[in-house]
Amino acid sequence: MTDAEFLLWVRGPAFNIALFIMLAGIVVRFMEILLMGRKTNLAEARGSEMAGGLNTIWRRTLPDADTFRRSGFTIIAGNVFHIGLFVVIFLFVPHILVFERLFGVSWAGLPSNIVDATTVVTIVALLAVLVHRVKDPVLRMLSNFSDYLAWLVTILPLITGWLAFNRVGLSGSTLIGLHILSVELLMVLFPFTKLSHAFTLVLARWYNGAIAGYKGVQS
């Protein structure tokens, strides 16, 4: 396989396969959660489910002072790499072009060199959380293979993307091909690892908030 053939394969059949698995996987996971349903609560409602649900979706995004004091590092590093990922994935012009092909809508991107710098910061933050995970005895004990796998498939596209943008080492086609392939790996594992929190978090928070809201208590 020449590097041109490799690039064609990752942009063509491989992307199709990865997209199929990711989308089908996301739909399956949603259906699993929704079809399980919830037991009807026979008690009289003391507040609104909807208000509690929506409120919690928002409120859980902001750390409360107590949690911050206990896990400041996790919160800061976590926010840095999540915001970094958002910028890198959604505000880099070549990526926006992919979303445009997928959804038919497009938006303005950031200058490529700002995205480049953000990539480095995001990689550093991800490395920091890994070191923290390995060093902290409790976290280490709680971590299993799938945690490390999720970390790996998240950082790989960042590294390959940075190499492709800065054109380090290999040929242009190979670098872009490897980057797309690493994204495809992420896409395939996305619904089936804890990375699925990217879409299940809304449901999970809503359920928590709604249960509390129904009871008329704060969640």
Binding site: G12, F15, L19, F20, M22, V27, R101
Partner: peptide, 14 residues
């Protein structure tokens, strides 16, 4: 950076 195949169809099938 964009896919070469008809991804709209893939999305519907998926």
């Amino acid at each position: 950076s964009t896919p070469t195949e008809n991804i709209g169809k893939t999305a519907i099938y998926a």
